[in-house]
Simulated assay, not measured.
Amino acid sequence: MDVTLRLATMSDLPTIVDIYNQTIPSHQVTADLKPVTVDQRRAWFLEHTPEHYPMWVVLQADQVVGWLSFSPFYGREAYAKTAEISIYLDRSVQGQGVGSQVLELAAKQLTTVGLTTLVAYIFSSNLPSIKLFKKFGYEQWGFLPAVAELGHRPNDLVILGRHFD
């Protein structure tokens, strides 16, 4: 089933937080080790603006099944055309091709927000995400060995990137 994107609103934040929190116990996707709250994520949410660093919810049959965001890469002016891409999907739709659809839709949004380059930070143990991004032309631009401790085990961070023309 096809998915669409809609700019996220504050009323979506509880669902966004719920989907994010689903990933924490696996120690594969995020560096947070315990669930976050809506209050903790409010300022982060407000940093995303439709003009340059948007956040969207992923809709399937009018249900929110995930979210996508572009975030500042480094916070300095020379990096203004580069953003970090984040995709989180509800566990009920993982492995069904939704991530592929979201990455296709994300690429179509770049020119409207003035971006030319996306980078993704993915733990080396998160093989499905690495495979997904590489399928869409992202290449490994960096590797930070054992920079995170997840589930009492060191984990590497892979930095994938892609330039869009």
Results as ranks from 00 to 15, higher is better:
Val3Phe: 00
Arg6Thr: 11
Arg6Asn: 04
Leu7Gly: 03
Ala8Met: 05
Ser11Gly: 06
Ser11Trp: 07
Asp12Tyr: 01
Leu13Tyr: 04
Pro14Ala: 10
Thr15Leu: 10
Asp18Gln: 15
Asp18Asn: 14
Ile19Phe: 02
Tyr20Phe: 15
Ile24Gly: 01
Pro25Val: 07
Ser26Asn: 10
His27Gln: 13
Thr30Lys: 02
Ala31Lys: 05
Asp32Val: 12
Val36Ala: 11
Thr37Val: 06
Gln40Lys: 12
Arg42Ser: 10
Ala43Gly: 12
Trp44Pro: 05
His48Ala: 14
Pro50Met: 10
Pro50Arg: 13
Tyr53Asp: 07
Trp56Ser: 06
Trp56Val: 03
Val57Tyr: 00
Val57Ala: 04
Val58Tyr: 00
Val58Gln: 02
Leu59Pro: 02
Leu59Arg: 02
Gln60Lys: 11
Ala61Lys: 12
Val65His: 00
Gly66Arg: 00
Pro72Val: 09
Phe73Gly: 01
Tyr74Thr: 13
Arg76Pro: 01
Ala78Trp: 06
Tyr79Glu: 11
Ala80Ile: 08
Ala83Tyr: 01
Ile87Tyr: 02
Leu89Val: 02
Ser92Thr: 13
Gly95Arg: 08
Gly95Trp: 01
Glu104Leu: 11
Glu104Tyr: 05
Thr111Arg: 15
Val113Tyr: 03
Gly114Cys: 14
Thr117Ile: 09
Thr117Ala: 14
Thr117Lys: 15
Leu118Cys: 03
Val119Tyr: 09
Ala120Thr: 04
Ala120Tyr: 07
Phe123Ala: 02
Ser124Cys: 12
Ser129Ile: 08
Ile130Phe: 08
Phe133Met: 04
Gly137Tyr: 09
Gly137Glu: 03
Gly142His: 02
Leu144Ser: 12
Pro145Cys: 11
Pro145Asn: 09
Ala146Arg: 12
Ala146Gly: 03
Ala148Val: 06
Glu149Thr: 10
Gly151Glu: 06
His152Met: 10
His152Asp: 09
His152Arg: 12
Leu157Asp: 01
Val158Tyr: 00
Val158Ala: 03
His163Glu: 12
His163Arg: 11
His163Leu: 10
Phe164Leu: 05
Phe164Arg: 02
Phe164Cys: 01
